[in-house]
């Protein structure tokens, strides 16, 4: 554990809490892609199956359980509790275009051809692209509420901090997880354009982020 890793996990937690609290308080999930949230729930489910096989640390176990619980709570709020507000007309990204290549790749490129390893690899690749329905939705409607953009900012920050964590771990303990690093870098690139808009628009006091 290093400071980048811890800050990355905290950013991830903050992002998910921001989204949950926003939906709960406003009693609305307008502008939120339910598809992205289902994909994230699928990411956590397939990655954290090792909760049943190995024990790493209390921190590790607690964080995994919290991420799982909060991602399912988010999906529940969007599709059940506040489904009347769910903006399905603008959440039209074709998820199968992500799932099919990701499933294919996880069978081809993995550390071991076992169910748990393939599911873990699937979760890593899927996380890299899971935000695409949300970004697609913002592009389609041309705007995002500032709370939604804060959520995306903390998600992107989490990814950037994980890259710093890998650089640190590579130098201090010669740790290098090729699958996680390559897909993590790809994932971070998706946030770059958004980061630029966030800094130039949202941080300068706009209530909404309106695309140029």
């Amino acid at each position: 554990m290093n400071v980048f890793r811890l800050a990355g996990d905290v950013s991830h937690l903050v992002a998910i809490i921001i989204l949950l609290v926003k939906i709960w308080r406003s009693k609305s999930c307008a502008g939120i892609s339910g598809k992205s949230q289902v994909l994230f729930a699928l990411v956590f489910t397939t990655r954290y199956l090792d909760l049943f096989t190995v024990f790493i640390s209390a921190y590790n176990t607690i964080m995994k359980v919290v991420f799982l619980a909060m991602s399912y709570a988010t999906v529940y709020l969007i599709y059940m509790r506040f489904r009347n507000m769910y903006d399905s007309e603008n959440d039209t990204f074709r998820v199968e275009f992500l799932l099919v290549p990701v499933i294919g790749l996880s069978f081809l490129e993995n550390y071991a051809f076992t169910p748990l390893e393939i599911l873990w690899t699937f979760s890593i690749f899927l996380e890299a692209v899971a935000i695409m329905p949300q970004l697609f939705m913002i592009t389609k409607t041309g705007e995002a509420e500032s709370i939604t953009t804060h959520y995306l900012f903390f998600l992107g920050l989490y990814r950037a901090l994980y890259i710093a964590n890998w650089v640190w771990r590579y130098h201090t303990e010669e740790f290098f997880d090729q699958i996680a690093v390559v897909s993590g870098v790809v994932q971070t690139i998706f946030y770059c354009d958004f980061f630029y808009l966030y800094v130039t628009r949202v941080l300068r006091g706009k209530a909404k982020m309106i695309l140029p």
Partner: peptide
């Protein structure tokens, strides 16, 4: 070490 042996990251 490789990622396969110890997956301690979230």
């Amino acid at each position: 070490h490789k990622g396969a042996d110890m997956k301690d990251e979230l």
